[in-house]
Every structure is written in C-alpha cells, then in structure tokens.
C-alpha cells in the first residue's frame, strides 16, 4: 500500500538481534533444509488448528522460522532425515548463539523431516 519504506523504520532499532543473521546462521548448519514459519500442514481442508507462526514481522516482509524476542530466540527448521535430532538441534543452537551474541535462550523447533540431500529417506 505504501509506496516505499517509511523513513527511519529500521528494525535494528527495536530488535535485540538481527533475524536475518540468525536465519543465515541456522540455514548454514548441516542437516537443516529450510526455515519454516508453520509446520508442514497435514491437509484435511479446514487447516488444522495451527500454533502461532514462528516468524519475525518486518516492514514489507517477514523472516520465516525466526522469532526474536527480548528473552530469547526461537527458530523453526525442517531437517534432513537420518540424523539424531538432539545433536542437530545443538548444532543449530550453537550457530544461532554465535550470530546473536548475548542471547540467553535459543529454542529450536523441528517442524518436519524431509529426505536428505543424498536422496535417502
């Protein structure tokens, strides 16, 4: 609706950690397929009662799968099949903490499993 960004609406001023940095760090982890706002829908038509999205809402766009709150960060990922998930989650947590220094808490939500990059499933 608005033609351009409003002047001064820079999300760095109100978010303690940059959601784009967090998204980049989480995606770079081995075993992470993608970040998702909502878990893959199991499709009987009216959509199942969904939990709130994990997303960061920014002017003109959203960062899916990353929720930044003052008390911590949550990331929701889809993982490749075939690995112990606790280890993977720990790896994601480490990466997010490196991208968000000083963050007291990182919740990793594993939304779904997808076939691995090598096609194993």
């Amino acid at each position: 609706m608005s033609p351009a960004r409003t002047g001064g609406g820079d999300h760095a001023t109100w978010l303690p950690w940059d959601p784009d940095e967090v998204a980049r760090a989480a995606l770079a982890c081995a075993g992470v397929a993608r970040l998702v706002a909502t878990p893959a829908p199991v499709r009987p038509h009216p959509a199942p009662a969904a939990a709130a999205e994990v997303a960061t809402y920014l002017p003109g766009r959203r960062v899916e799968g990353v929720r930044v709150r003052p008390d911590g960060i949550a990331v929701q990922v889809e993982c490749h099949f075939g690995e112990r998930l606790a280890g993977l989650a720990e790896r994601v947590r480490e990466a997010v903490l490196a991208a968000a220094p000083g963050c007291p808490r990182v919740d990793v939500l594993i939304g779904d499993l997808v076939p691995g990059p090598d096609g194993s499933s």
């Binding site: 909502t38 969904a50 999205e53 997303a55 809402y57 929720r67 709150r69």
Partner: peptide
C-alpha cells in the same frame, strides 16, 4: 496465524 505478541513488538 501471526503471533500477536511478536507482531505488536514489530
């Protein structure tokens, strides 16, 4: 579907 807590923060 949006989280109202997060949306209101933004």
């Amino acid at each position: 579907g949006v989280s109202i807590v997060d949306l209101s923060q933004s």
